[in-house]
């Protein structure tokens, strides 16, 4: 299982770099869809299938469609080069920043570690893990927190997303930019 995860991480990093460097916008969108698929697979492998499903539908589906519609309405920079030119100093700064962030990784607890601070010292997590089924009758704790304990919050989020969708449809229907 570790090898699958390592190979997936390499794939995700390669697609991320390619998305940033590709000169043609449409090519970047297509490679970004591949990035989303890899990321969703990684989430699913870490046993977060709901996040993986959302990443696949939003990242590979909705974002691709929205970006395609955007470049229909605007222009696509052409050119002979496949890749953007890279500023060595900027690349160096980004690499240094990535190394600094990467240095914090060994201090994170392992995946599913029962002694991790969030599980062992936190009364709140323990309460949800032990009591959520008795209080709400929902089997999955994440779903119980999302839909029962903070139901109004989720309802508000859904309203915002719905309003945004309706707004996008209205704007696209009018086609003011053509």
């Amino acid at each position: 299982m570790e090898y699958v995860a390592y190979a997936l991480v390499i794939f995700v990093i390669l697609t991320g770099i390619a998305t940033a460097l590709l000169r043609d916008v449409l090519a970047a969108i297509i490679v970004f869809a591949a990035y989303s698929l890899g990321m969703a697979l990684l989430y699913t492998l870490l046993l977060a299938p709901d996040v993986g499903l959302t990443e696949a539908v939003i990242g590979a589906g909705v974002t691709t469609i929205l970006l395609l519609l955007t470049i229909v309405k605007t222009v696509r920079p052409g050119g002979e080069r496949t890749f953007e030119r890279l500023d060595p100093r900027a690349a160096l700064a980004c690499g240094a920043l990535a190394v600094v962030f990467g240095l914090t990784l060994p201090d994170l607890p392992a995946v599913g570690d029962p002694n991790s601070p969030i599980l062992s010292y936190d009364a709140v997590t323990g309460h949800y893990l032990t009591q959520s089924y008795a209080e709400t009758g929902v089997e999955n704790t994440v779903t119980a927190v999302l839909a029962a304990y903070r139901g109004f919050d989720t309802f508000g989020e859904a309203t915002v997303v719905f309003a945004a969708g309706v707004a996008v449809l209205v704007v696209l229907r009018r086609e003011v930019f053509t």
């Binding site: 190979a7 390669l14 590709l22 449409l26 090519a27 297509i30 490679v31 591949a34 496949t82």
Partner: peptide
């Protein structure tokens, strides 16, 4: 193998090549 096929998605040269690779 997915990482290998990614080469075609990045390299192109045409847009259809990329779609096919993805």
């Amino acid at each position: 193998l997915v990482i290998v096929v990614l080469y075609r998605a990045v390299r192109g040269p045409t847009m259809q090549d990329r779609v096919l690779a993805v």
